[in-house]
């Protein structure tokens, strides 16, 4: 069962990456999707990241009770956990719900109303036209969102730390700049790229093969979100194991 679906998924991807009929039409779609996925998710990701950063800082401070440890360590821990795990993963899980479900319901409703058949009749590569722009937008915009999320998690930490009095701004900034390793950002970007690909391609796959009507479109989009989330966590583990 799993292998049947996985094979079908790979075949769909093969069709997605066929040479586009006309780049300028695809280009227009890519810009549209980048706007939809990237700009459309800015606010949500910004709010979540800031709060998670703030809460993380207070929680780390709560656990570090020893006087032997300088409070700047709080900044360091927040920085590394935001970059390496929290920002990429939380952003991806949230977007799997937001972006993923909208992709699968959009493509799914085009399937059940025969719009995909209409594309095919015209001789247009429907997977390419419908899915490629979304995947390209996903693998470019989600890394951008993750970078923004990391930045805001650190800012949130600064705010949370100083408002609660857990760590002074000077110590916190000391902490986040001290012993910073650029490689961790590379790991975050690789994760974001992989997650972006998973979210867009898995939910497009679930939508593309819907059979039935409005009810099935809804079910497919729910299932798309679940499968994306699980795949994201598995990929997270694999990338971490390979890169750290």
């Amino acid at each position: 069962m799993f292998f049947t679906y996985f094979g079908q998924y790979l075949l769909l991807l093969k069709a997605v990456f066929r040479r586009p009929e006309k780049w300028n039409i695809y280009w227009k779609e890519i810009i549209h999707e980048m706007n939809e996925i990237g700009v459309g998710s800015l606010g949500l990701i910004a709010i979540i990241s800031t709060f998670v950063g703030a809460v993380m800082t207070m929680q780390i401070a709560f656990q570090l009770v020893s006087d032997l440890i300088p409070t700047s360590v709080i900044g360091q821990i927040n920085r590394d956990s935001s970059i390496l795990e929290l920002s990429p993963t939380i952003t991806a899980l949230v977007l799997a719900g937001k972006v993923g479900s909208s992709i699968s319901s959009q493509i799914g409703s085009m399937r059940v109303t025969e719009q995909i058949d209409a594309l095919e009749i015209m001789g247009i590569n429907a997977p390419g036209y419908l899915i490629l722009p979304k995947i390209l937008a996903g693998i470019t915009m989600i890394p951008v969102l993750v970078i923004m999320s990391i930045f805001l998690a650190l800012v949130g930490g600064l705010a949370g730390g100083s408002l609660s009095g857990a760590v002074t701004p000077a110590d916190y900034i000391n902490g986040i700049t001290d012993g910073f390793i650029g490689y961790t950002v590379a790991v975050a970007l690789v994760k974001a790229f992989v997650f972006g690909f998973i979210i867009t391609s898995v939910s497009a796959f679930k939508g593309f093969y819907v059979r039935g009507g409005a009810l099935e479109v809804g079910q497919a989009s729910t299932r798309g979100v679940v499968i994306s989330c699980i795949s994201i966590l598995v990929a997270d583990y694999i990338v971490t194991a390979l890169m750290l």
């Binding site: 039409i25 085009m110 109303t113 719009q115 009749i121 015209m122």
Partner: peptide, 28 residues
Amino acid sequence: EIGMLFQNSALFDSMTVEQNIIFPLEMF
């Protein structure tokens, strides 16, 4: 070289009437 009308029309609902009609021309 095929033109087809579907039983339920199957118009692209994110496009206007005009965009629907010129879509195949844009592509080919």
